[in-house]
Design a binder for these strands. Sequence first.
DNA 1: TATGAATGAGCATTCATTCAT
DNA 2: GATGAATGAATGCTCATTCAT
Lengths: 205, 205, 205, 205
Amino acid sequence: MTQPRKRNRAATTAGLLAAARARFALLGYDATNVRDIAQDAGVDATLIFRYFGSKQRLFEEALAPIDDQDDLPPDGEPEDIPTRLLHSTMRQDSVDHPLIALLRSSSREECRERLNTQLYDTYVRNLEGLLDQPDRELRAELLTAWLLGINVARTIAHTPALSNACVDDISPFFDQVTAVLLGSGSALKPAGAEQTAGTAADGQV
Amino acid sequence: MTQPRKRNRAATTAGLLAAARARFALLGYDATNVRDIAQDAGVDATLIFRYFGSKQRLFEEALAPIDDQDDLPPDGEPEDIPTRLLHSTMRQDSVDHPLIALLRSSSREECRERLNTQLYDTYVRNLEGLLDQPDRELRAELLTAWLLGINVARTIAHTPALSNACVDDISPFFDQVTAVLLGSGSALKPAGAEQTAGTAADGQV
Amino acid sequence: MTQPRKRNRAATTAGLLAAARARFALLGYDATNVRDIAQDAGVDATLIFRYFGSKQRLFEEALAPIDDQDDLPPDGEPEDIPTRLLHSTMRQDSVDHPLIALLRSSSREECRERLNTQLYDTYVRNLEGLLDQPDRELRAELLTAWLLGINVARTIAHTPALSNACVDDISPFFDQVTAVLLGSGSALKPAGAEQTAGTAADGQV
Amino acid sequence: MTQPRKRNRAATTAGLLAAARARFALLGYDATNVRDIAQDAGVDATLIFRYFGSKQRLFEEALAPIDDQDDLPPDGEPEDIPTRLLHSTMRQDSVDHPLIALLRSSSREECRERLNTQLYDTYVRNLEGLLDQPDRELRAELLTAWLLGINVARTIAHTPALSNACVDDISPFFDQVTAVLLGSGSALKPAGAEQTAGTAADGQV
DNA sequence: TATGAATGAGCATTCATTCAT
DNA sequence: GATGAATGAATGCTCATTCAT
């Protein structure tokens, strides 16, 4: 009680970051206030400024680590990329997906930019890399938009069916839509069996 | 606008509503302040309270009219519904789509509820009505999520390809994805050939 | 409906004054707003400024007429003065006694001055005139304070017994206290008999 | 006060309470604004909200301590009660008597209630306890009204004689009036001697 | 190092008052 | 003469941030 906390800078900043992540994702930047974050972390609000300088910087750092974790690692087969993005989208039961935090804070120009960047780096670029059609950017963005929309529907709008669905419920549809959007000439094509439907669809387009 | 538009209640309220619509959609509820809205409309901020009572009420009225306009009218063929929803999603060059305003204000419980309601009434319910599979709700929500994601990508994230795309660029993909998601047994089915792929895909799922 | 009111200046000002009197007495100057007064009178708030110039002037004029009516007329026997002041104090079932309005508005220097003046002109001066002792001013003020306190207790504090009391309930006490405060050497004294009771009462205590 | 009294919660809250007490008593609740209170106390206005939560709460706390101090302690002889109430009424040279603050804020329902309660608890109830006549409540209220009126005359109306009077100037009258109002059968009666003086005083006045 | 007292800018809202019709 | 649209000053209150200990 005299030493209320371990005076452990690492633990304090980690707790602050976690609390910030949760609040920013749930409420967005504006509606989140630093005192509540500090209270959630069980520390004094001043430490936010001591350790991070400003609310803005805390926001940036709170979103950064998960960004990296979300960036697709280069290992793994290319044809797994869509599936892995779906898993990333569906993975979070917790509401603190960084994309959602950015979306909810998108009244800030910098957040909009960052949302854009992150969407590109994590989704569009990776998907586009699988394709070689002239309209591959649009195709990649269309699939990205779908994943983004699913995320929003689940974490913000809370539409009932999607909120309760798990990856397996969605996979069948996802595979087909992926086949349609990534279409022929995609790197996925040679991968084979599960793409058959996609191939069929693609053939007719 | 060039003329100070003096002593005209109708024009003043209309200007206030337009300015509010734009600011709320761009910045969300919290980040929007009444003085800026009034300044955009070229009038004194107190008129907001005179005519609307509160910022909250202004928000509601600013979003209301477009809501109605977005609700699908019951006329028209059922199989046109997805296409019409796509047009509604793509129609707005202006950023002030009410769905976006609600999304950006989603830190407020009431806005989340309203977003949910509006998503259901305008999208999910109408799409679900076309289907009879046991999983028709999930299918409808998946298509809704896509339209929502496209909207977000265009108006908030400003992804380049989607932002510059027009309905015709997207229609081919949209038709196929619709076929996949609404699948067999849908009211769309008898409409024809392009559903074949969908049916095939559906069969294999 | 096309001619909503008789456009009768006299009636309008009278209605405004009456409404103002009631509101000012009930709420004091600050807590009363001109729109409510106008609404009570059934006219537009602007007329207050047209006819009275300002809220302040309306206040002054609203309190003025009753002032005069409360000033003791010079006719009548001097020994009736205390009794008449008691009746004035007890008379008002309605809450709009001007003294109360002034008291409730006494945060304004001008109202305090006016309260002082009115208390002096209506009460102290008249009572003091009945006396010739060196401490006649203090005696007069002590009786004035009592009448004032009774008024406050009835109209503001709403103490139960005093609120429900009528003049006859209080008269016996009043006569004795008057006898004590105005005391011997007062102009009342030679008047005689009813003071005896006071002395008797005093004796029995 | 000369020294900025920095970083001292106790001193700051005390200063704020004192400043609030003075302003509320002088101006009433509505006419007092928090910025002025803070300026009087030499601190920033936001500290009012930090320490008290709201203007309303500050008002309550500013009036509370004096309330307690004014409540008659149960010790002491019952027959001293009237005298002690007189002293309490006359004691305050400072204008910040809580009764006056309440009176000046009486446009607020809650203040009216509290005024009523306080008047009853501090004055009426204690006086009534000395009596056993059927009309003891009225008698107690009449004496209460007088003390209240004296307070108002001194602190609000500033009538000259009462404002400059001290307890000793008023005591002779007070004893006689008390004798009249509390009358025969009062608990004061057996106390005896000092009432005789009242009678004597009456005779000699 | 960490605590909490202090601060100033900003917000929604109200009100008396003026101006144009 | 009378209506209601327009205005600017002020108020209670919140928040990120800094300063002193």
